[in-house]
């Protein structure tokens, strides 16, 4: 009981445990699981990451302006939805060329606004994928 009282009084002179968040940034560990990043030049278009992704946040959809990568025989384009992604890293583990074609950074996604039309644009891609 007395110990508890002493603790309560000493707590009055301690620094707060909380962080004044937007003003003071929270320290991020370098191993923090964040956005998935893609290196187009090294991609071999095996589509393993697309199949492995649990929420389906990676889609390879046909495009009219394909990249110059010679492995891209079907004229596909890599699309990634950071707001659907659960950052589990399954795609990176499935990738035959991790660290070169696909890797996990410790970055956070930007806050999506209404103007970005995150969902609408993604639904169009999903429809295209289904039709192909």
């Amino acid at each position: 009981m007395i110990q508890s009282l002493i603790k309560a009084f000493t707590n009055l002179f301690k620094k707060p445990q909380t962080i004044d968040y937007p003003l003071t940034p929270i320290a991020k560990d370098k191993e923090y699981r964040g956005l998935i990043e893609y290196g187009e030049e090294s991609c071999i278009y095996c589509l393993k990451c697309e199949k492995a992704c649990p929420p389906g946040a990676i889609l390879f959809v046909k495009t009219e302006n394909p990249s110059a990568n010679e492995k891209n025989k079907k004229a596909l384009e890599y699309n990634y939805n950071p707001y659907l992604c659960i950052y589990c890293g399954e795609c990176v583990r499935a990738c035959p060329k991790p660290e070169e074609a696909l890797w996990q950074s410790n970055k956070k996604p930007s806050v999506a606004t209404k103007e970005d039309k995150v969902n609408d644009n993604w639904f169009v891609l999903e429809r295209l994928k289904k039709e192909s």
Binding site: E31, Y32, R33, Y87, C88, G89, R93
Partner: peptide, 21 residues
Amino acid sequence: QELLTGNRIQFDYISIGGVNR
């Protein structure tokens, strides 16, 4: 927990066949 798994709440640490990190 965050250092070990890379996330505070949703650890996503266990996969079929072992662990991720």
